[in-house]
């Protein structure tokens, strides 16, 4: 399946991926409303770790055998059989955060309910990838990336 890969040599630490992720997962889809006014405030699914010298954007790996799915007590955490995308079914999620505890990458965020990257599954390309100014995030099949 296509996943997001971060290239740390190109990451600018600008963190625009976070800004655009929040906006993409907001109610309004408007960058200013999402980041300033919306309640509850949308949470970025991607996080840039590091500083200007070395940084990389981290988000869900969409594991082949995801621990979060196994650990989910309500069956809210789902791995789509067709696309391989691991996402939260918000109707079922009760916010127990067991998934957060078991994720080996620290890619699940705490909100009212569990929050995680869904690869913007309703769009062609994830918002973070689309808006990365230096192409430090690429959306590709494994082995399909250049580096």
């Amino acid at each position: 399946m296509k996943r997001i890969y971060a290239i740390e040599e190109l990451c600018l630490n600008c963190r625009l991926c976070e800004v655009y992720c929040k906006s993409a997962h907001s109610q309004s889809k408007d960058i200013i409303k999402a980041n300033k006014y919306e309640e509850p405030a949308p949470v970025s699914r991607v996080t840039v770790y590091g500083d200007n010298f070395l940084s990389a954007a981290l988000n869900c790996r969409h594991c082949d055998d995801p621990k979060c799915v196994k650990a989910c007590i309500t069956g809210a955490m789902t791995k789509d059989k067709k696309t391989g995308i691991v996402y939260v079914n918000e109707d079922k999620c009760i916010g127990c955060m067991t998934c957060l505890a078991v994720c080996p990458y620290g890619c699940i965020k705490e909100g009212k309910k569990a929050v995680k990257c869904d690869l913007c599954r309703n769009d062609d390309e994830p918002a973070c990838v689309k808006n990365c100014p230096n192409h430090a995030l690429i959306y590709a099949e494994p082995g399909g990336e250049e580096k």
Binding site: L12, N13, C14, R15, E18, V19, I31, N35, K36, N52
Partner: peptide, 12 residues
């Protein structure tokens, strides 16, 4: 009105 305090400018 427009600034969302994302800090991109700070880091750039």
């Amino acid at each position: 009105e427009l600034c969302i305090n994302c800090g991109c400018c700070v880091r750039q």
